[in-house]
Design a protein around this nucleic acid. Structure first.
Lengths: 237, 237
DNA sequence: GAACTCTTGTAAACACCGTTCACTAAAACC
DNA sequence: GGTTTTAGTGAACGGTGTTTACAAGAGTTC
């Protein structure tokens, strides 16, 4: 299995070092400090050598985005696993709080991944944990039934597509859902929850609330409560 | 009144040209293309000359942010004025739709102003129109009364501060409000609306919805409906 | 083991960037 | 008319992404 040439191992090591250096520069000195020459300096090599590993500065930044997404997903999965309540509502809370905590602890990474007018990005990576959880949430059937009539007809086509994405995400984890459980009304509310979650976190990270919030955590928790209640959770934590 | 020296006029002209060039570069080729040399090239002068007008590249970017905020505010005020219904609910809709339209038409500007992990920014400029409208909305008393008990105690202090900000913003327009009309419950819901509005717009501009939305406008309108309903608007448009 | 190829690095160079500094020419002022 | 203030230049410094030609080592083949 570990059929790796010596050369391949060395190459993998260097690539890992490149990623680590790039990440450290981003965290400590911001996006503009992630420079090919600075990375090379960190590794004790010259800048053109990096072109043996990445086609361009932009390609390296893309890789950096993917790494960030993967790391964040790992953190969120850990938060999810740390919840032993067995209640889906608590799991949702754990992951949402984890997302906020991660974003506040990694503002530069958050900005790069979630707030750049760029190409598709590593959306696959990032969304996985949310999709999986959202799918499980819906499958648990603890969510109140929202009539499909609530959602505008124009959205049906898109929501059906998202429905398929969700079912695929869940089936990867070995769970299968019947169509009628995963109805459009629920899916619509999941999307709306993502809007609120993302909105609050981004506003907090970027400091764009319309006034100075001295302690945003209770505001977040309060929003989370209302969000879960809107979705239809009646569990009491 | 127009006691301007010839030199002062020339200086003002040049400064305006600098801003225009910077703005055009941002719009057409992105944030990283807004370089001192590129701006100077556009004006037919050399880069160091720009230091007669701005202390640094960063200072010029800050000025650019302020300009963007001012322009956006003008657009939103125009959208507001274009609504002749006289109904506050319709005005709120007009401004929120205007915000979305502006953000989609100016993604680079939006990213620079609303999604950068930076200093305070020209928040004064940008928020003014929202504050004014939110204040009027609340003052119109069409909003259902939300009990103050709904909002967590920890938030009271912050919300009271925001209450003052709102009342100041409204009083600038010659309207005064009694304290009991502008209660904390309402204010809390205004903040929550901002979270959802910003969340949707940012997700759309940055393409970070969890699936491909082919036509996001009805989704936005649908969210707007629910937002207004949550706030307590019963007007029918 | 010699000859060969492939891989990984270097050094030099190009064009661009922000910024500083000495300097000039023109405008404004007294 | 002489002086000061101002807006510009050009050269330079160290930084950037990227390309190119080249060297040295690792792996492979005979």
């Amino acid at each position: 299995m570990t059929e790796a040439t010596r050369r391949e191992r060395l190459r993998a090591d260097t690539e890992r070092e490149i990623r680590q250096a790039a990440r450290a520069l981003l965290v400590e000195r911001g996006r503009d400090a992630v420079t090919l020459r600075a990375i090379a300096r960190e590794l004790g090599i010259t800048a053109p050598a990096l072109y043996r590993y990445y086609d361009s500065h932009e390609a390296l930044l893309r890789q950096l985005c993917d790494d960030i997404c993967a790391d964040m997903a790992a953190v969120l999965y850990a938060d999810l696993a740390a919840d032993t309540s067995g209640q889906v509502g608590c799991q949702v809370r754990a992951v949402c709080r984890g997302f906020r905590r991660w974003a506040l602890a990694h503002p530069q990474e958050f900005a790069l991944v979630f707030a750049s007018p760029r190409d598709p990005l590593g959306a696959d990576q990032f969304g996985a944990v949310f999709l999986s959880l959202a799918g499980r949430l819906i499958a648990s059937n603890l969510v109140a039934n929202h009539a499909d009539d609530d959602v505008p007809e124009v959205l049906h086509e898109d929501l059906v597509r998202f429905q398929q994405v969700l079912m695929d995400a869940v089936s990867v984890h070995g769970v299968t859902i019947e169509d009628d459980v995963l109805n459009l009304g629920k899916i619509y509310h999941v999307v709306q929850s993502w809007v609120r979650l993302y909105g609050h976190v981004a506003l907090e990270v970027f400091g764009r609330f319309p006034f100075a919030v001295s302690n945003p955590e209770p505001m977040f928790d309060s929003m989370l409560d209302q969000m879960l209640s809107d979705i239809g959770f009646q569990e009491t934590p």
